[in-house]
Amino acid sequence: MPERNSEGFLEDAQAWTENVATTIAAEDNIQLSENHWEIIMFLRSFYKEHEMSPPSNRLFVKAVKETLGEDKGNSIYLMQLFPGTPAKTACRIAGLPRPTNCL
């Protein structure tokens, strides 16, 4: 497992692999399905394009909606996939920095 910070976020987004994702998800008792991977891959390409994680949960939902449509870009769907604060949980599993405005 690559180096992580005290909240479980990877120190280096480059160090991420699918195995790393599976391991981090398991810590949250999440078994990654195709629906999870779709969001994880979306987040990784978002980060590559914009050099940032969506800064807050609301903006995470907005960004998903913009790209994958309303069926997936809504807080209930994302909350079911990534319990807790979806943006935070999803970014952690996707190996991205912690969203700046999530407590």
Binding site: E49, H50, E51, M52, P54, L59, K62, A63, E66, T67
Partner: peptide, 15 residues
């Protein structure tokens, strides 16, 4: 540092 050009390109997505 992160590129503001790339950060800014997220602006339309966020509304």
């Amino acid at each position: 540092q992160k590129s503001v050009e790339r950060n800014l390109s997220a602006a339309p997505i966020f509304g």
